[in-house]
Design a protein around this nucleic acid. Structure first.
Lengths: 127, 127
DNA sequence: GGCTTTGTTTGACAAGCATCAAACCATTGA
DNA sequence: TCAATGGTTTGATGCTTGTCAAACAAAGCC
């Protein structure tokens, strides 16, 4: 592989279809402190790397990977592979289509409870 | 006790204060099939009895009691004792104060996924 | 006072889950 | 080709949890 472009893997992480999403599974996926931090970090809608340094979590590398797997298999996130880097993104389209407003209120609740959450200018965290 | 009025117990089920509610605990409490059915049944805001027949759940009596305990200790419900009857109600005030919109979207999502949910007149369950 | 009703509590058990360590796989760079 | 990088998979382990059975507790009824 002497290509200049980073190799884009052919998605080794299959996603559950929108119709196959289960509310119970989504709620339990969100019902973990570490995963709630991850969800909050992903709330901007962008792709975020899967490395430990980007999340302020005092857990092992393999544990973080496990959490990403739980999030993905619940349908909350999708995973993109670029070269040797993995990145995750919230499946906002699918979630909004299935349960309108759920992801927004979930993220809002997580942000509200997170003392480290940086408030947007003019917006009080204490709400 | 020869009183005509049913005896009102002095709340043997203490509730967590609003400020002590934990989002993770609430989400995990909601992340169970049986408890999601209960939440949906309670969504009208009224008190509902704690007996098995009122919920279409194929579980043991003690298991149902366990679920009520999980819901109560997570802060999602309160329990009222009247005579020998127990009744539960969603703590909508506390939940709305702490995480605005969360309970509504949660209930809406649960109703949407429940095939047995009776739609209001003119409202399609398939959305 | 006994018996029934209405649930809760306790104990036990199997399944699930969060965690870490070690091994592994694919990509990149020398 | 060989080592380093980025992250996943695979055990293994201890804790949590959903479930039922048996015992318990409080209130009403005869």
């Amino acid at each position: 592989m002497s290509n200049e472009e980073p190799k884009v893997g052919h998605d080794p992480f299959p996603l559950p279809d929108v119709d196959d999403l289960e509310l119970v599974r989504v709620l339990r996926a969100a019902g973990d402190p570490a995963r709630l931090v991850i969800i909050e970090r992903l709330s901007d809608g962008d792709y975020h790397p899967c490395n430990l340094t980007d999340y302020r979590l005092d857990i092992h590398k393999t544990t973080l990977s496990h959490h990403f797997k739980v999030l993905r298999e619940s349908g909350l996130t999708r995973t993109r592979v670029t070269g040797r880097e993995h990145a995750v993104q919230l499946r906002r389209d699918a979630l909004d289509a299935r349960w309108p407003g759920l992801l927004d209120t979930l993220v809002a609740a997580a942000v509200r409870d997170d003392p480290d959450a940086q408030a947007a200018p003019g917006v009080s965290a204490a709400g």
